[in-house]
Design a protein around this nucleic acid. Sequence first.
DNA 1: GCTTGACCCTATAGTTACTACAGGGTGCAT
DNA 2: ATGCACCCTGTAGTAACTATAGGGTCAAGC
Lengths: 147, 147
Amino acid sequence: MKIGELAKATGTKVETIRYYEASGLLPPPARTQANYRDYELSHLERLMFIRRSRDLGFTLKSVRELLTLADDDDESCDAVDEVASAHLLAVEQKIADLTALRDQLSLLLQCSGDGTVGDCRIISSLASTNLANIRNQSSHIRETGNQ
Amino acid sequence: MKIGELAKATGTKVETIRYYEASGLLPPPARTQANYRDYELSHLERLMFIRRSRDLGFTLKSVRELLTLADDDDESCDAVDEVASAHLLAVEQKIADLTALRDQLSLLLQCSGDGTVGDCRIISSLASTNLANIRNQSSHIRETGNQ
DNA sequence: GCTTGACCCTATAGTTACTACAGGGTGCAT
DNA sequence: ATGCACCCTGTAGTAACTATAGGGTCAAGC
């Protein structure tokens, strides 16, 4: 199986496959006489594992760990569980961070009017007030119906 | 005002300030005889603007746009609004993506048992099933009370 | 037999937003 | 005079690719 075929089969770019090989995630395959990479089914399976893990947001470092754990049948499942749990926690933290950020952005945007930058509240919020002040501004806006 | 003082005043690292200057976000300040950077109040204000924008998740590219818009008093506030709205949309999309991802990760983790990797469901889910199958596995698990 | 196009190869640089040296100079206090 | 904290430039490293340059290979069609 040539690299282009493997790429198509797994939905990965050719360069990415070579990158995974260089990073030690995918073992170097045999080569044809023309020095083309010649992949086996095992490579396809391993690459699918990598892709699925990446789709779930695991870093390559974590994928490496998961692969190492998966390679050793005697390894406890707990270690796998730990990697995945840590990742889930990180994702949840990220969601919380982004949600707080979204709320602040929403407040910022409620300040938007139709004037010029000279009295643009978004700009002045970014320029001189701290973020807590935006709330006061926006409630003022709501009171005056300017929305 | 020396760079270290500006750094402390804004909660920015010295290297980051120099990086902003090199990136054209912060104008080069005057220099002392010793070739030290000598900042004015205007630099502090501009840097605070950059920091607040970055805290809200704007890319440096967007910050550059916002600064350009803010510099021109005649510019319409609409342009500012557009930049901020686009960012808000991107943040909301990211939250949605991460939420879907979190749900899939949760499903994956519900599969975790206490065996060895040989029959570790997390590994096998990553290895061979597509993600839709995890749901079936997990509902099966829920049925058997294994959670 | 020769060309054309699709594919393959290596090696290197670019992306984002910093961070971290290495190797050197400055200013002030002891 | 010497130590220390601070400043300078320039370069390399981070994550996970992506893109380019400059070249080789293979099968099909004329």
